[in-house]
């Protein structure tokens, strides 16, 4: 009973928060509400027995995205006042929202209510996949090709973001002089590395994996940007390029190797699949961490109070 109540509460709060995010006039409040919404949805996904996703959502979908948006506000709040942050009042918007929800809800409610999906098929071949965790099996074996293209998506995004803002690769103008934060970072680093390594390893048989680990490492990188004199990695450095690209190169190599012995792309031999997947994941962890880290250009002191008073 309490569980049902919690579910109903969460399910009701999510769209409500979403509406508030877009309704609020102040941009910084919007972002804060967005982060709150993200944390609630991570909770919803935990309720739906999706711990892998809950982890990634909390770290990437909410944490990193929220930080990126917050950080962007310190740049964009100088936008001319003619672009108001608030939606013009449009009656059609409410009607459209209701109509869309109704139509989509109708389709959702006509779906069968106890469909196992592909659970049986995934389980039937789990032994051949080289890993014990079904989600990892789908991600890196059954549908590993999706993941290969997804790595390309990450590379394109970081290349594009860097191409647009090359000059913002400056070092932090004033890293926090607070000795406590610097010390905290030094103490955190080994723990972060340990957690990331553990997440890759555990991904073979439980919730975890390259994305979760990469996100943790990237989070550490962002903290380093804030607290130390370390600058954002530059594309012009060959070390950075190798760190970024070794993972994708290894993955491509592992993908095409079977082609030369008459098998299909990504068709690992059953005996080697586990090892290949683990090595690829380890290399990808570094690349993913680098990409997510490099999404953050040089820091500027945030002016949260100012952006709180958006011109309306």
């Amino acid at each position: 009973m309490t569980a049902a109540l919690l579910d109903a509460c969460l399910a009701l709060c999510l769209p409500l928060l979403a509406w508030l995010v877009l309704r609020t006039e102040s941009l910084s409040q919007s972002v804060v509400l967005f982060v709150a919404m993200g944390l609630l949805s991570a909770l919803a996904w935990a309720r739906l027995d999706a711990p892998d996703i809950s982890l990634v959502e909390a770290a990437v979908g909410t944490g990193l995205t929220g930080a990126l948006l917050m950080h962007t506000l310190s740049w964009t709040d100088e936008r001319p006042p003619d672009v108001a942050a608030r939606a013009r009042h449009r009656p059609w918007a409410v009607v459209a929202m209701a109509a869309l929800t109704g139509m989509l809800g109708w389709a959702v409610l006509s779906l069968p209510s106890d469909d196992p999906g592909l659970t049986r098929e995934v389980d039937a071949h789990l032994a051949e996949s080289g890993v014990e965790h079904p989600v990892t099996a789908v991600l890196l074996n059954y549908r590993g090709y999706d993941t290969l293209l997804e790595i390309a998506v990450l590379l394109v995004a970081v290349l594009g973001a860097r191409a647009v803002n090359p000059r913002s690769e400056r070092t932090t103008p004033e890293p926090s002089r607070d000795p406590l934060t610097g010390e905290l970072f030094r103490m955190m680093t080994p723990a972060l590395l340990l957690v990331a390594g553990y997440l890759v390893w555990v991904g073979e048989h439980g919730p975890g994996g390259a994305f979760q680990a990469g996100a943790i490492l990237a989070g550490g990188g962002v903290v380093a940007l804030l607290t130390t004199r370390l600058g954002t990695p530059r594309m012009s450095s060959w070390r950075v390029r190798w760190a970024l690209l070794t993972g994708p190169l290894l993955f491509i190599g592992a993908a095409v190797a079977p082609l030369f012995s008459g098998r299909a792309l990504l068709e690992y031999r059953e005996a080697q699949a586990g090892t290949v997947i683990f090595v690829v994941e380890l290399a990808l962890t570094v690349s993913i961490a680098m990409v997510l880290w490099m999404f953050f250009p040089g820091m500027r002191p945030a002016r949260a109070e100012r952006s709180g008073k958006e011109p309306s």
């Binding site: 027995d49 789908v138 549908r143």
Partner: peptide, 12 residues
């Protein structure tokens, strides 16, 4: 256990 295929799609 829930269907792992949508979970993988969501991660992507």
């Amino acid at each position: 256990a829930p269907d792992p295929v949508p979970h993988a799609l969501v991660l992507t």
